[in-house]
Write a protein that binds this DNA or RNA. Structure first.
Lengths: 89, 89
DNA sequence: TTAGTTTATTAGTTTATTATAATATCCTGA
DNA sequence: TCAGGATATTATAATAAACTAATAAACTAA
C-alpha cells in the first residue's frame, strides 16, 4: 500500500472542522444548514470542507428537496479517528 | 476529546515521507543516515520531518555515538495507519 | 586540537491550504 | 415564470507547510 494514498486520506481528515463534521455525522445524516449551526463555520467554508471529504470518498450526499443531506459513506473512517483518540490515552 | 488535538496528530502523519518514516521504523529503530537512504529525501528535509514526528510524541530518539537513533515512541500510532489502510479495502 | 562524519537549524523560496466575500446554481412553491 | 431559500463555486488574500542550500552543532578518531 502506497504511503501517498494513506497520506492523502489523513490529509483530508487533518482539520478541526472536518473532524467535527465527521463526529456530527457519526450520529446520523444532516443537511448543510444543520451542519452550519453545529460546526459553526460560514456556509461557503463548510461547503469547501464537505467537498474535500466527499472527494476522498469519506462522505456522500443526496438531495432532499431544497436541502442537501450529507452522511458518512464508509464508516471505516470512524476507526481512524477512534485510533487517533486512543493515541492520547 | 477535542477535534483540534485529533486534527493535530493527523496533520503530523499526513505526509508521504512521514508515513514512510513510520513504516520503516515499525520494523525497528534506525539512524538518520539509514533513513535517508530508505526514505530517499535530503538530509535536512528528513531532519525536519523527524522533528515534526518527535514533537507530537510519535517518535523518540537517542544518541548512539555519532549517530542519532530514531524509533517509534508509542506504537498506538501504527493503528491509525493500519485503519487508514483498511479504509481502501 | 584538528579533520571528518552525522545530524540539526536557519533563511529564503515555492507551493498548498484556509477563510472570506461575492456570485452562481439548484430547487420549491406561489 | 418568478422569488426566495439552500448549497456550490469562484476569486482572492492571508497563512502555513514544504523544500533547498548553507551553515552550525555534536561527536569521534587521529
Amino acid at each position: 500500500m502506497q504511503e501517498g494514498q494513506i497520506a492523502d486520506v489523513l490529509k483530508a481528515l487533518a482539520h478541526p472542522s472536518r473532524i467535527k463534521i465527521i463526529q456530527v455525522l457519526e450520529k446520523g445524516e444532516r443537511c448543510v444548514k444543520d451542519l452550519e449551526k453545529l460546526v459553526m463555520i460560514k456556509q461557503s467554508n463548510l461547503s469547501q470542507h464537505l467537498r474535500i471529504l466527499k472527494d476522498k470518498g469519506i462522505l456522500e450526499c443526496e438531495r432532499d428537496g431544497m436541502e442537501m443531506c450529507y452522511r458518512i459513506k464508509d464508516r471505516k473512517i470512524l476507526d481512524v479517528i477512534k485510533c487517533t483518540e486512543k493515541f492520547f490515552t
